[in-house]
Design a binder for these strands. Structure first.
Length: 198
DNA sequence: CTTATGATGTACT
DNA sequence: GTACATCATAAGG
């Protein structure tokens, strides 16, 4: 598996979205505890060729992070109560990101559960806002750089607050489907879901 | 299993 | 005003 450096994220968002399947997110919480999850569902969002994208029209204060450095996060608040987490892709200046829609716990599951009490196994991380809730990610992580050790979230927990690791083994099989919760661009199969893990 | 609905804040028209 | 890259809950089959 290649190194997840700036170059790796600078590729087409659809390629990155597929290659993120199986990768791990490692979260260090402010209290010093840790959890790790494996990504199993992603969606690609791009620029003017993507009518469903926040950056499908013009650059605004909200979508500006999508134009930033690949490997940064784009976190937005939606429906009055939820946060969604994206990883910015493609070269800086060119808007694109991958929404992390679903994952499965690998380590420190009890710390994820603590943030989503009473939830059945299957529903712990199977949605973009469920994932950010369990990982305790919010707007403080907007523009956060996965590939550097700075930012206020890091200072708050004495270490790298969020990092990403390559897939130990790539997913055995995955499928592409229309993206969820959008009304334009439904003909594009830019959602990627793991079907089987080897 | 399925479909329906309310909650809730912000960006944008 | 309206729409929104959502979720938890309730009711129906």
């Amino acid at each position: 598996m290649p190194q997840l450096d700036r170059e790796w994220f600078a590729r087409d968002a659809r390629e990155v979205a597929v290659d993120l399947l199986g990768c791990m997110l490692v979260r260090r919480f402010p209290d010093g505890t840790e959890a790790a999850v494996r990504i199993v569902e992603t969606e690609a969002y791009r620029g003017s060729d993507d009518p469903a994208s926040h950056a499908g029209r013009r650059r605004t204060a909200r979508n500006d992070p999508m134009f930033g450095q690949p490997g940064n996060l784009y976190v937005y608040f939606t429906y009055g109560m939820h946060y969604c987490m994206n990883i910015v892709c493609e070269p800086a200046g060119q808007p694109a990101a991958v929404l992390i829609r679903g994952a499965v716990p690998v380590r420190g599951e009890e710390h994820l559960r603590a943030r989503r009490p009473g939830v059945p196994d299957r529903q712990l991380l199977n949605g973009p806002a469920k994932l950010t809730k369990a990982l305790e990610l919010d707007l403080k992580f907007n523009r956060y750089d996965l590939l550097a050790a700075d930012g206020e979230p890091d200072a708050a927990c004495g270490g790298k607050a969020l990092s990403i690791l390559p897939a130990e083994s790539p997913p055995g099989s995955w499928k592409a489907t229309p993206r969820i919760g959008i009304s334009a661009g439904t003909d594009l199969l830019w959602r990627y879901v793991v079907e089987q893990i080897l």
